[in-house]
Design a protein around this nucleic acid. Structure first.
Length: 676
DNA sequence: GTAGGGTTAG
């Protein structure tokens, strides 16, 4: 062991020469700094027995206990001190903040305001503002903001930064912006708070803009800056921007683990698993979050298998998964219908005491339900605490997924009776059940509940309602709900549903009208909307409208039509008897037409007794799906309709040759069409 | 002694 150094000798010597109380005070400060609770308690006891507990010593003891996080003793001593300076109040507030007891922190602050001998300073405000932020007490936060303005700390950087964070955390983006713009001096923390705040409040684009401004204005970015901006890149799938940020990370050597984790997540969310993997593989040290982010990436990109195998490697490497990892892996099992691994994981989770985590319970309920093991799902559910909303939601969607509508609705009623908090996700899990029932009365009941409770203002809830009403055939009610959605909230989803609703029920004209309204309101149609509108035209026989829309799709939207779109168009033209146009369209297709396209043509040929093109379509169909009996039957039907019995017989022979005619053919083509 | 940062979920 080395002997005491020169400096410690002189310190110790000084201490020995000092009066006893000063020595104890120094000792306590030392204990506070090193958070030695046991020693503090021992010294406290010694001070009591030796009668040395002066007011000064008691003050230091409060600070020491506060630093050690021993709330009970700190509070007891603090309460009986005759004089409490700002510093001591600050220590108490800081202690409560560190413990996450924001309410108590606020109480101490209020005491401080009421005391005559001290007032808050630039250290106090950031703490209490954080407390407001965590408690979402924005009104109180505003009062604090006012207090800082009348004090001399209104322009203190730390105070302002904490105000920014508070406003952002409470969703007061504008207010944060005002404070930010008025700041004479900004630090990297100010910028980071804005970037992160914008993203968390749903303004991912603005987050990117602010980040760019920050870089342009020459502020030296740090790890927190990139960790704040990368989620926005991932969310917006801005791969190029993400890559540039990655470049900055390498340039500034921000090689922290958390930064790499954020990069992995960004690449994964942008769909570039190769780059995610590269960052992951190059990491010197990986933690649970690194592995979990990769696993999440594979799941997001539809590769649940790789997610599972990475999870296995993770365990081989000795890393312990947390509840997030487990929740994800269970999700992967659910999507793969992999009951075996799911059950295995269930057992492991029980042993690891991760079971009681809500996310894990919920994922288990979900996994079993998706693997169609509703019994197991329900037995996990019955063992949950039953107070939290999420497992109920998972059970609701489990029932709905297994088409057990009545059970889902029953469970929801139970939820109401047991006083479990209902949220928008609950409604979204429940509503598909009503779609399965397709019975108007219960739908009206739930609708009035959703109106009263205000959940209809949630766009997904409203969308579900529109969907259910149109499934029930009540287009009027569907449209009524649709109209309650503010125009700027109506998204492509709800538009597609209402349009498809009208189309499905043969109101092609209305569907087309709505489609035009949608485009006018600035909502960009996507693949699905185009398919549904073209189908609507086809069903209603609106040939010209369909052709116009198809042209519109090509020209104005520069959407490359897919197989579904061509199928709709061929169907549309074919039904109208415009066979040659249909065939010409097929010939212009930029990719190989699929069976659906040829099927539509063949169907139309049968309808209009066009053998020439029917034979062409059938030839392709026999090649593309040689085992589909339907195609042979259709061709035979076409021949038979024209009295070409010999050809019909040849088709039958061909079916026999490839061993297709196992079932009696009559049932397939309708009675009496062809006599085999 | 003070401010900002990562993975999941129904």
């Amino acid at each position: 062991m080395n002997g005491p150094t020169k400096s410690t000798i002189s310190k110790t010597t000084k201490l020995l020469l000092a009066p006893k109380t000063t020595r104890y005070q120094s000792l306590l400060k030392h204990y506070g700094a090193s958070q030695s609770l046991t020693r503090t308690i021992q010294l406290h006891a010694h001070l009591i027995t030796s009668g040395l507990l002066s007011i000064d010593i008691r003050s230091v003891l409060v600070a020491t206990y506060a630093h050690c996080g021993y709330v009970h003793n700190a509070r007891k001593l603090f309460d009986v001190l005759p004089q409490r300076g700002t510093l001591l109040y600050n220590f108490m507030i800081k202690m409560y903040i560190a413990k996450g007891d924001y309410f108590e922190a606020m109480k101490v602050f209020l005491e401080m305001l009421g005391s005559k001998d001290c007032c808050p300073d630039n250290y106090t405000y950031p703490f209490v503002i954080k407390a407001c932020s965590e408690l979402l007490l924005v009104e109180y936060g505003r009062v604090l903001h006012g207090l800082t303005l009348v004090s001399k700390f209104g322009s203190h950087l730390f105070v302002l930064n904490s105000l920014l964070a508070m406003y952002m955390n409470c969703g007061e983006v504008e207010e944060a912006r005002k404070v930010f713009d008025a700041m004479k001096e900004k630090s990297v923390v100010s910028w980071n708070t804005m970037i992160n705040g914008y993203f968390k409040n749903g303004f991912a684009n603005t987050a990117l803009v602010v980040f760019n401004q920050m870089v342009d204005s020459g502020v030296e970015i740090d790890g927190a800056s990139v960790v704040s901006v990368l989620p926005a890149c991932g969310y917006l799938k801005e791969l190029e921007v993400g890559r540039r940020v990655h470049g900055l990370v390498e340039e500034k050597v921000l090689g922290k683990k958390i930064v790499s984790n954020a990069l992995v997540d960004m690449y994964a969310k942008c769909g570039s698993m190769d780059e995610a993997r590269l960052v992951f593989d190059n990491m010197v040290e990986r933690d649970v979050v690194s592995w979990t982010s990769m696993i999440n990436g594979y799941i997001l990109n539809g590769d649940a298998k790789s997610a599972l195998s990475l999870f296995k490697i993770m365990q081989i490497e000795g890393l312990r998964p947390n509840s997030v990892t487990i929740a994800l892996i269970l999700l992967a099992c659910a999507s793969l219908n992999n009951l075996k691994d799911g059950r295995c994981l269930h057992g492991w989770v029980m042993k690891q005491r991760l079971y009681s985590e809500v996310a894990v319970e919920t994922s288990l309920i979900d996994m079993y339900a998706k693997c169609n093991c509703l019994g197991l799902s329900f037995s996990v559910f019955t063992r949950t605490s039953r107070k939290k909303t999420v497992p109920w939601n998972a059970m609701l969607s489990g029932f709905a997924h297994n088409k057990l509508a009545t059970e889902a609705i029953g469970l929801f009623k139970k939820m109401l009776m047991e006083g479990v908090e209902i949220n928008a996700a609950t409604c979204n899990s429940l509503l598909p059940a009503y779609g399965i029932l397709a019975d108007l009365q219960p739908v009206n009941n739930i609708n009035s509940y959703l109106m009263r409770s205000g959940f209809v203002s949630n766009i997904q809830v409203a969308t579900s309602l529109v969907d259910i009403y149109s499934k029930c055939g009540s287009l009027e009610s569907a449209h009524k709900i649709f109209n309650t959605i503010p125009v700027d909230v109506q998204d492509i989803c709800v538009w597609s549903i209402i349009i498809a609703g009208y189309g499905m029920h043969g109101h092609g004209e209305t569907a087309v009208l709505l489609f035009k309204q949608m485009v006018q309101s600035g909502v960009k149609p996507n693949d699905v909307t185009f398919t549904s509108i073209l189908q609507s035209c086809s069903h209603a026989g609106l040939v010209d409208d369909g052709l116009d829309l198809f042209k519109f799709m090509l020209k104005d939207h520069q959407t490359i039509p897919n197989d579904d779109h061509y199928t709709c168009m061929v169907d549309l033209l074919g039904r109208a008897g415009r066979m040659d146009e249909a065939y010409d369209l097929i010939k212009t297709m930029p990719f190989m037409p699929g069976h659906a396209v040829w099927g539509a043509l063949l169907g139309a040929c049968v309808m209009h007794e066009n053998v020439e093109l029917g034979e062409v379509a059938a030839k392709w169909l026999f090649e593309l799906e040689p085992d589909n009996t339907g195609n042979y039957v259709l061709l035979a039907k076409l021949y038979a309709a024209l009295g070409r019995w010999e050809d019909a017989e040849n088709v039958r022979q061909r079916m026999d040759d490839i061993g297709l005619r196992k079932a009696p053919a009559r049932s397939m083509i309708g009675v009496g069409t062809v006599n085999w």
